[in-house]
Deep mutational scan, measured.
Amino acid sequence: QEEEKEIKRLAKKFNASEEEARRAWKKAGGDPETAEKILKKKG
C-alpha cells in the first residue's frame, strides 16, 4: 500500500517512529511534502 510505504520512508528519513510519521501524514492530509515539513519542525 502506497500510504504505508510513504510512512515508512518518512519515519526512516527523519529518524522518527512510524507512529509519529503516521500522525504527521494524517495531519498533512496525506500530502508527503507537508508531512515532511511537520516532521522536520518536530525533529
Rank of each mutant, 00 (worst) to 15 (best):
R22Y: 08
R22K: 06
T34D: 07
D31G: 02
K13Y: 06
E36P: 01
G43L: 13
K13F: 04
K13T: 07
G43P: 15
E3T: 10
A16Q: 08
A11D: 00
L39W: 00
A21D: 00
E4N: 07
A16K: 09
K8M: 14
E33G: 09
G29W: 05
E18V: 12
L10G: 00
R22D: 03
K27L: 15
A21I: 07
K26N: 13
E36G: 10
L10H: 01
K41C: 11
L39E: 00
E18P: 08
G43H: 15
I38F: 09
S17R: 04
I38L: 12
K41G: 15
E36M: 08
A35W: 02
F14W: 15
E4I: 10
A16S: 08
K8V: 10
L39I: 05
K12D: 12
A21E: 00
K5M: 14
A24N: 00
A16F: 06
A16M: 09
A11K: 05
D31Q: 06
A16N: 03
D31P: 01
L10T: 01
K27D: 15
I7P: 01
A21C: 07
E20M: 05
G29C: 03
A11W: 03
K26F: 13
E20H: 05
A16G: 02
K37Q: 08
P32A: 13
A28P: 00
R23G: 10
K40V: 11
S17E: 03
K42N: 15
K13S: 05
R23D: 15
K5C: 11
E4R: 07
F14H: 06
K37E: 14
G29H: 12
F14P: 01
E2L: 11
K26E: 14
R22L: 09
R23Y: 14
A11N: 01
K37S: 05
K5V: 12
P32D: 03
L10V: 02
L10P: 01
A11S: 07
G30M: 05
A28K: 00
E6D: 05
R22P: 00
E6F: 12
A21G: 02
G43C: 09
E36R: 04
A35H: 00
K12H: 11
K12Y: 09
K41P: 07
E33A: 12
E19S: 10
K5I: 13
I7S: 02
G43F: 15
R9P: 01
L39Y: 00
E3P: 05
E33I: 13
E6N: 08
K27N: 12
K12C: 11
W25Y: 09
E33V: 13
